[in-house]
Every structure is written in C-alpha cells, then in structure tokens.
C-alpha cells in the first residue's frame, strides 16, 4: 500500500524472551522521541513466559503523526534467534535490511542479510551476553542512521542500570564499529 507518511520507518527487533529485545525497542523509541524530538511508537508481544518463548518489539519512527502503531512491513528486521528469524523474515519490505546473529540464525534464504555474531561480540566486549541487545542497537543505528549515534548513546545510558553505564557504552560502540566495517560509507 502507499504510505500516507513518507518518512515512516518500521523496525522489528525479535528474539527469545530474556534477550532484552523489548528493552532495546524502548531504548530505540526513546532515542527517537526524547533525544531527537521525533515521533515514535513502540509496541511489543511476548509469550506467556517471562523467559524463553518468542519476544518481539516493534518501533515505528516518523517525523509526523503515527496512526497504525504496529509494523505493517518492516524496513529493518533484527533477529537474534532462529525462531524469530523464521517467523518474521517474510514480513520485510523489498530492499529492507536484515540484521541477524549469525551464530544463532541460519539466514541463507536471505543472501543480503547482514550477518554479525552479535551475542559472541557482546560476550567478548563486556563479558556479559545480556549486552547483546545493546550491541544489536549499535549495529542497527550504525548501519541505518535511523536515529543519531548521540541520541542512541544517551538513550542507552539513561536506561543502563547504575554501574553498568560503561559496559553498555562499550557494547554500543562495538556495534557502531561493526557497522562501520560492514558499510564504511554509512558513518554518521
């Protein structure tokens, strides 16, 4: 369908419960809404279990009003688990961006997918796999510029539990670095 608002950007972050994908969605929406003055709507769905099960966050970003709050066809899919990729790979716009954790997701059906060992990078950078969501945000923002790096950094630090600020900053910056390696022209 024709988009009523040209700059509507739809991002889907999906993984297993406990991987922090919903929090990543909230941080991305805050980066857009609070630190860049854009409009953003974040929605989510999760399995009945607090841990395990499928978990999905959606963020719609626009400079104008956002009506339908959910992703209709994603501009970007970030998938950190096999199931999440299988479930959502088909609902990405033609020419849309796929970012997958290559050690968890078999993405051979989407040759153009950006494959990054996100969870391993998180562990190697901070010693905690829980920071994989922050690494993913770094890669996402680094590749797309959907929000500025400054905005996402502020948003990550505002949400980081006390004492984990540096760890999260390191994870985020590592994500930026990965993005720069993959697509040097998209630095911003």
């Amino acid at each position: 369908m024709s988009e009523p608002i040209a700059d509507r950007i739809e991002i889907r972050l999906a993984g297993e419960g406990g991987q922090g994908m919903i929090l990543a969605g909230i941080i991305l929406a805050e980066a857009a809404a609070i630190y860049e003055g854009k409009n953003a709507v974040q929605t989510q769905s999760y399995g009945p279990e607090a841990r395990g099960g499928a978990s999905k966050a959606e963020v719609v970003i626009s400079s104008g009003e956002i009506d339908h709050p959910e992703v209709l066809e994603a501009d970007v899919l970030v998938a950190l688990s096999k199931d999440a990729f299988k479930k959502f790979a088909s609902n990405v716009k033609l020419g849309g961006l796929y970012i997958v954790d290559e050690e968890k997701v078999d993405s051979h059906t989407v040759p153009q997918a950006v494959r990054v060992p996100i969870t391993r990078i998180a562990f190697e950078t901070t010693g905690r796999i829980i920071t994989a969501n922050t690494v993913a945000l770094g890669v996402l923002v680094g590749l797309t510029g959907v929000v500025s790096r400054t905005a996402i950094e502020k948003a990550v630090l505002a949400r980081a539990p006390k004492g984990t600020e540096e760890m999260n900053r390191a994870a985020l910056f590592k994500g930026f670095a990965v993005a720069d390696e993959r697509q040097p022209s998209r630095q911003n």
């Binding site: 909230i26 929406a29 809404a33 609070i34 409009n39 953003a40 709507v41 974040q42 929605t43 989510q44 956002i66 709050p69 959910e70």
Partner: peptide, 9 residues
C-alpha cells in the same frame, strides 16, 4: 492491550 502496552512520547 494495544493502547495499554503501547509506548508513545
């Protein structure tokens, strides 16, 4: 559930 769980500025 949509409005209840949705986040907006």
């Amino acid at each position: 559930e949509i409005i209840g769980h949705m986040r907006e500025p």
